[in-house]
């Protein structure tokens, strides 16, 4: 049963990802990306990665969607003029065919060879997770701090001082 839900969420995620490419309205496309993200969070949860799922749901599907929605509204890029819409539609029309072809070929290759990957699917205990994050990954925590600093300076340069020149 759990396996069925994983497969269902994955299929829906690919559909939502494809929709984010295909949809001509930028706003709908952004929301579609958020939906794909939420479905990915569900998959992570079903695979036993509880904390990663929470992060994916709140940050990727929440925060990033907000960032994109603001970017879309600030750039007014949701142009709906007829020519533009037609052009976008024509340029991405091949995507479903490519996806179906690629997916079918990979599945065929995977099943036609003697190659097996088994998911052990043992959720990590909180103690193990805490140990891994705080004892083993000191350099990543340092990296996160520096990355956040970099992001802060980026926002200062790109937004705060833009109008001064």
């Amino acid at each position: 049963m759990q396996q069925f839900f994983i497969v269902l969420c994955l299929v829906l995620m690919v559909v939502a990802g494809g929709a984010a490419v295909m949809l001509r309205s930028m706003l709908k496309s952004t929301i579609s990306l958020g939906v794909a993200s939420a479905l990915l969070a569900a998959v992570l949860f079903l695979l036993g990665a509880f904390w990663a799922a929470i992060f994916e749901l709140s940050v990727c599907s929440g925060l990033i969607t907000v960032v994109f929605v603001s970017a879309v509204s600030l750039t007014n890029s949701d142009r709906k003029d007829e020519e533009h819409v037609k052009e976008h539609r024509a340029r991405v029309a091949a995507l479903p065919a490519i996806l179906i072809f690629a997916g079918a070929s990979l599945l065929f290759i995977l099943f036609s060879h003697d190659f097996n990957i088994v998911i052990s699917s043992t959720p990590a205990s909180f103690a193990a997770f805490k140990e891994a994050l705080w004892s083993l990954r000191q350099s990543d925590i340092l990296g996160q701090i520096i990355a956040i600093l970099a992001g802060t300076f980026a926002v200062i340069v790109l937004f705060k001082e833009r109008d001064n020149i």
Partner: peptide
């Protein structure tokens, strides 16, 4: 799984 979640 613990390590892969910290990566994510």
């Amino acid at each position: 799984m613990a390590l892969s979640q910290t990566f994510v």
